[in-house]
Computed example of a mutant assay.
Amino acid sequence: MTDDSPRHGGALPSRRALLRAGATLAAGLACALPARAAERTLRLSYQRSSTLLTVLKAKGTLDERLKPLGFAPSWHLFTDVLGPMNAGAVDLHADVADAIPIFTQAANAPLTFYARERGAPSAEAIIVPEASPIRTVADLKGRTVGVSRGSGCHFVLAAALKRAGLAFSDIKPAYLQAPEGAAAFEQGSLDAWVIWDPFLAIAQSKRPVRVIADATGLSSYHRYYLANDAFVAAHPEVVAAVFDALSEAGRWVKQNPEPAAALLAPLWGDLPQPVVAAVNARRTYAVEPVERDGLGEQQAIADTFREAGLIPLAIDATAVRIWQPPAGRG
């Protein structure tokens, strides 16, 4: 018996007729329903130290904020952010300390500043073991000092030495990335270490240390948020939504220190909550627009790095592309 044979005393429609009817119905529904734009992906990078981006990711905030705009977030964790920034590997990049944009600008990376966190100079410091005879920056003469080459701490060390009447050549720099520096400091291979949070807070939690200077008076330690030029030009409404979400996340962290530490501790490699709380207490997490006349410290860093041969040419650190939030934001 075939499908188009009569049953129950009546003729059933043929398969061809059913297909024709189904096609007509589908066409009718397509005309009746509003067209839905295909969802696009917003690619974001972040680091372990990207507090506010980590909060947004953990809470799913951007999933909610971006959906009405036709976007969904895609998260990419990087330990070395400079390469992805120069290559334009994502749309919105991880927040970075003040030194990193100097290198991206020197490389002519197509990046736009769209936000920054207000300065937190106590989050960068020169530390020594508590039992060390070193009491001041001047006492670093002839000593081995660990520092990450080309970092904001590199600038802080150079500026601190200059303020103390010393040249960089008066010390023995040990150029180490933060994890290697942590191991060397703990093993006693360094006389002093220049480091930022959360590594600073971790070192302070492991053994008695003394801060002989932090970045106060030398560097504000702003953290900057940058995006690819083409994405900012094409989707300023998405950038605005992310800016607002970052601002709200910053207020939440400062207003809810215990829940914030509990949220972040496992995401930062199972750090003890008191360590996370110490980091959050030092950072302001106050997200604000970038103002061109507020980039003077960037110029000081650029000049120092040029003198040290870290960038190939002199640059105007204020000659960067800046996105400003719409009136009423920020």
Rank of each mutant, 00 (worst) to 15 (best):
D3E: 14
D4I: 11
S5P: 00
G10M: 15
L12P: 04
R16L: 11
R20S: 00
G22N: 04
T24I: 13
L25S: 09
L25F: 11
P34K: 12
L42K: 03
L42E: 05
L53W: 02
A58H: 08
T61V: 14
L62W: 03
L62A: 07
L66P: 06
L66Q: 09
K67C: 03
P68R: 12
G70V: 07
P73E: 06
W75Y: 15
M85D: 12
A99S: 15
I100C: 01
A109R: 04
A115G: 07
S122Y: 00
A125T: 04
A125Q: 06
I126G: 06
I127N: 00
V128C: 07
S132I: 08
S132W: 07
V137L: 09
V137R: 09
D139G: 02
D139P: 08
L140P: 05
T144E: 07
H154M: 02
G165W: 08
K172A: 11
P173R: 01
Y175Q: 06
Y175F: 15
Q177F: 02
A178C: 01
P179C: 10
P179D: 03
F185Q: 06
L190S: 13
L200F: 07
S205L: 05
D214C: 02
S220D: 15
R223A: 13
V232Y: 04
V232G: 11
A240G: 08
V242L: 14
A245D: 08
L246P: 06
L246G: 10
S247R: 14
K254R: 08
N256T: 10
L271V: 12
P274H: 03
R283F: 13
T284P: 04
Y285L: 07
V287G: 10
A300V: 01
D303E: 13
E307L: 09
I315E: 05
A317I: 01
P325I: 12
